[in-house]
Design a protein around this nucleic acid. Structure first.
Lengths: 338, 338
DNA sequence: TTGAAAGCGCTAACAA
DNA sequence: TTGTTAGCGCTTTCAA
């Protein structure tokens, strides 16, 4: 037999279509014995529900969309993994969509998600994303922002608050004797890019430090370029603004054979696998990626249930490694070479 | 108005339901003027097809499933990205599923993919996956193996042939004067794990080298553990079997402060972002990940079209870096410290 | 608790 | 080329 339908199951169990549906979906009451019979018949036939038909009728798909800039970015691939697993715990599958930081591709995916009638969307937006995202609103698809948000938007968001960690970072650089600190920025097209620029500016003011701004775009290449330029102009204290610029900056530093923590103090963002290969170890801003992802799913589920939810802001911390460490801790420092 | 349906579009364009459907889906002939009118009406109404209804009726979903061990593995996240983009070029969306190397989770996802009636599946299998995957066969869902395969299975696969690269690697170690080479294996539950063990064994025989086998499981932790153990027993030539064990082994080497390329020769697998931070640069086996992913999508599309396809095996190469380089090239070597 | 019947939005025959 | 109609497989009223 071709794929058995619920009709076949009902027939085999000797009940009506409706009863079989109630037993299988768990909605509506069924006498235990009847339910058993239906379940057994389904098993005998190796029946599998057609989610297309179910969703068409019931008006929900048990699926959400996750719209991120790029899975290959280790920060987002971790995010994607936790979102997927958290959603699974709610019986919901995730449609992963890579916008590639391109508004057109984001718009295209928004269309796909609308057509597929997903129950909700978790998105990490960027400039010009607002218009692309408007379609979700038109269809009243619950949406949650993750990592980044659109200022002024009523959409609830789960983001991390990096202000105190960045203040600590600048304070540390100041304490290490630096009057000039290089900062590799993120793009002004993202909320995180803008925020971190402002936070660093404020902290620098506060600690009497001058910032050497270097434009970056959250890609490794720009991190590499910016770090090279900063090193060329004699800066000996560098801060990166995300995981990828951190990797890029480190590769430039490593290339030039500069001793981290001695000739140069460096503070990165997010502890990715790559940064584990650095000696001395990396001082970096740690964001709560896992919590962020799990919280976003939770918010979306509650939004879908009709609850009113508010945005969540998770604190981040400065993790001390050898690449920039307060003098007092210097004894514990170990260096592999140089 | 709530979501407009194709009825609304037809009414506005002054045509019948069927005509509107033909104009919108592109199947069947429609007079150009009529088509224009329908498209205009659809645009006016901001109509979006309900893919659930379309798929239910037409019996295809324009979606495929991608079943991989873990997106966080940089090797697979790259694979996932290319698969997604290649599929998009065919107008097909990708459902990304992380099996987490667990048969139950793979079985669960196979169920999900069956219920969602995907048009095809690309999967990177492991031991005990065969039974979980049987469900795809029951539903006659076209399947292609990627990176790994199940020996003896009729399912077409796209894999890389690492034999000559690994032979070169062993030859290089031999030429560098090593009689003993440590090899961090992959799990015997994967075809790649088994193959690489055999290929290394053959090459070692061939070049008169003895292999110090260290069990690994394609995770960073095991790479770290294995490398530590090998270094402890005095081995000074190490080979890893995949991207993750490479990262793990490197972190162990870096931790111990051992000078790569001098006190120790190391050859890794796959050039991930992390390995770009290593000095001297890494000697590694490069697989054609992008081609692999694109080819798998192509195979699946052709399979779906009823073509008979055959498995593809892509050659891989040994990329020379400073971590293990033939003596002749030694002049070009640059070291950052030590 | 169960059955009968309607219909979700669309495509694909079939006729005209 | 177009309109009409049946029906994909399921859930969900409504009665019984």
């Amino acid at each position: 037999m071709a794929r058995p339908t619920i009709r076949d199951v009902a027939a085999r169990a000797g009940v009506s279509l409706g009863t079989a549906s109630r037993a299988l979906s768990g909605n509506g009451s069924v006498r235990p014995a009847t339910r058993e019979a239906v379940l057994q018949a389904a098993k005998d036939l190796d029946y599998r529900v057609n989610s297309l038909a179910r969703s068409l009728r019931s008006n929900h798909t048990a699926s959400i969309g996750l719209l991120i800039p790029d899975v290959r970015n280790p920060y987002f691939s971790q995010l994607a993994h936790v979102v997927e697993q958290s959603a699974l715990e709610h019986g919901v599958t995730t449609l992963l969509c890579n916008a590639d930081e391109r508004p057109e591709q984001m718009a295209m995916y928004v269309d796909v998600l609308r057509e597929r009638r997903v129950d909700g969307v978790i998105v990490s937006p960027f400039a010009d994303a607002e218009q692309a995202l408007a379609g979700l609103d038109d269809d009243a698809i619950p949406t949650v922002f993750i990592d980044r948000r659109i200022p002024g938007s009523p959409t609830p968001s789960v983001t991390s608050d990096t202000s105190s960690a960045l203040d600590e970072a600048i304070a540390l650089m100041s304490r290490l004797g630096h009057r000039r600190v290089g900062f590799i920025t993120g793009p002004r097209t993202t909320s995180t890019g803008i925020e971190r620029i402002e936070q660093v500016a404020t902290a620098a003011d506060h600690h009497g430090v001058e910032v050497e701004w270097q434009e970056g775009d959250f890609h490794t290449e720009s991190g590499h370029r910016a770090a090279t330029s900063l090193l060329g102009s004699g800066v000996r204290a560098i801060l990166a603004s995300d995981a990828q610029t951190t990797e890029g900056a480190l590769s430039a530093i490593v290339e030039q054979g500069i001793a981290l923590g001695e000739g140069l103090h460096f503070i990165g963002f997010d502890g990715t696998p790559a940064t584990a290969l650095i000696r001395p170890s990396l001082t970096y801003v740690r964001q709560q990626v896992q919590e962020m992802a799990a919280t976003a799913v939770d918010l979306l589920v509650r939004l879908r249930a009709g609850e009113i939810v508010t945005s969540v802001r998770l604190p981040s911390t400065l993790v001390l490694g050898g690449s920039a460490r307060p003098a007092a801790d210097h004894l514990t420092e170990e260096r592999s070479c140089a």
